[in-house]
Design a binder for these strands. Structure first.
Ligand SMILES: [Zn+2]
Ligand SMILES: [Zn+2]
Ligand SMILES: [Zn+2]
Ligand SMILES: [Zn+2]
Lengths: 169, 169
DNA sequence: AATAATAGAGTTACAATATAACATCGCCGC
DNA sequence: GCGGCGATGTTATATTGTAACTCTATTATT
C-alpha cells in the first residue's frame, strides 16, 4: 500500500498500473474486512475488471467481459456487485455516461469530482473538497439538505486535447 | 419580463407561478427568434408541460401527458424537443433522475447547478458561477479541457427536510 | 453438531430510458 | 413551381436498470 491519495492526473502519467491496481484491490479487501462485509468472488471479479485501467465501463460491457463459467448471463448480478462496491466507496458511477469507474484513492467512503474524457474514456478523479463544501454552503443558504452530490465534467484529457488541437487548430 | 435571474429558492417561495411560466415562455420565444430557430408547436408544447411547475419530468411522463391528437405516441418526438430545448438552454437535464426541468433563469445559454429534492421532486437552480469556474480551474491545473459540466445535489428541500425532521428527530 | 437466521447468488422475466432509420411534410428562398 | 433543408411521423430496436422468487452459503444460536 504505497499511496494514500492518488494524484488526479495519475491515469495520464505513465505509471506502474500493476501495483496501482493491486493496491486498490488490497484496499478493497481491507475496507470490507473492517466493515464486516463480505468481499465475495463476484464482487472481486467485477472490481478487477474495473481495475484493468482508468476507464469507465458500462454495466453491460462488464457483463460481456465477465467469465460466467456456465451460469446464465444476468445483468442483475453485475448491478448488485456495482451497488455494493459503490456503497463501499470502491467504485464511482459516472452519470454522464451511465458507466462505472474504479476508485484509486485509498480513502474512506467519499464523494468524487470526476473529469471524463469523451474521446478515450479516461476518468480523472479529483480529491478537491472545496467544491463539495462550496456546494454544501450553497445548499445551506437555501435551507436545502444534501444527501449526495454529483460533480462531473466531460471534455478532453490532455493527450486527447493535443490530438484534437492538431487536426483542428 | 419582470425578472432577469431567478432566485434559487424561487420554487419554494409562494409566488405567482402563472407569470413565472409565461415569462419563461416569452423568453423562449425571444431566444429562438434571436437565433433564427423555429419554436414549433411540439417544442412549445413540451416546454409548456415542463413549465407547469418547478419539478422535473421524465421523458415518458411528458409522453403520457402529451396531447397527441390522433398521431402515434412516439418517445422520439419528445426527445427531439427536449434536445432542442436543452441546446437553447431552456431546459436542463437532471442526470440523477433521468429527467428534465424547465429553466426559469431568463439568461443566455448557461450551465446549471441543480438541487433536487428526492421527496417532492422540486428542483432549485442556482446561478452560482464560482462552482463552475472552480471546476474549470481544477481542470486547467491537470490540462483537462472541459466541454460540459454536471453539477447536482440530491437531498431534501427546506419543507421536506422539516417534515422528515418531524418524524425522525 | 443441529438449527435458525440472514446475506448473497442464480434465474427468469420485465420495466424504463433512449436511439436508428427512413419516409414525408412544410417552410423559405429562388 | 421547384429545390434545399429542417422538422415531423412512424416503426422498430437498442441500451440501461429492476422485480420477484428460489436456492445456497455463511454466520449466529442453541
Ligand atoms: Zn493506474
Ligand atoms: Zn482522452
Ligand atoms: Zn414558478
Ligand atoms: Zn421537497
Amino acid at each position: 500500500m504505497t499511496q494514500i491519495a492518488a494524484d488526479p492526473s495519475l491515469p495520464l502519467s505513465p505509471h506502474d498500473h500493476r501495483s496501482c491496481a493491486s493496491d486498490a484491490l488490497a484496499h478493497a479487501e481491507a475496507v470490507c474486512e473492517s466493515r464486516n462485509k463480505r468481499f465475495t468472488e463476484n464482487r472481486r471479479a467485477v472490481l478487477k475488471l474495473l481495475l484493468d485501467d482508468h476507464r469507465a465501463l458500462g454495466a453491460y460491457e462488464i457483463l460481456r467481459r465477465f467469465d460466467w463459467g456456465g451460469r446464465s448471463r444476468a445483468p442483475v448480478q453485475v448491478y448488485r456487485a456495482l451497488d455494493f462496491l459503490e456503497s463501499m466507496g470502491l467504485v464511482h458511477r459516472v452519470a454522464s455516461s451511465n458507466a462505472y469507474v474504479a476508485c484509486y484513492r485509498l480513502a474512506e467512503r467519499h464523494g468524487a469530482v470526476l473529469f471524463v474524457c469523451e474521446t478515450c474514456g479516461v476518468v480523472m478523479e479529483c480529491g478537491e473538497l472545496n467544491l463539495q463544501s462550496m456546494m454544501d454552503k450553497l445548499a445551506r443558504q437555501s435551507g436545502f439538505t444534501i444527501h449526495s452530490q454529483l460533480l462531473e465534467a466531460v471534455g478532453h484529457c490532455p493527450s486527447c486535447a493535443r490530438a484534437a488541437e492538431a487536426v483542428d487548430p
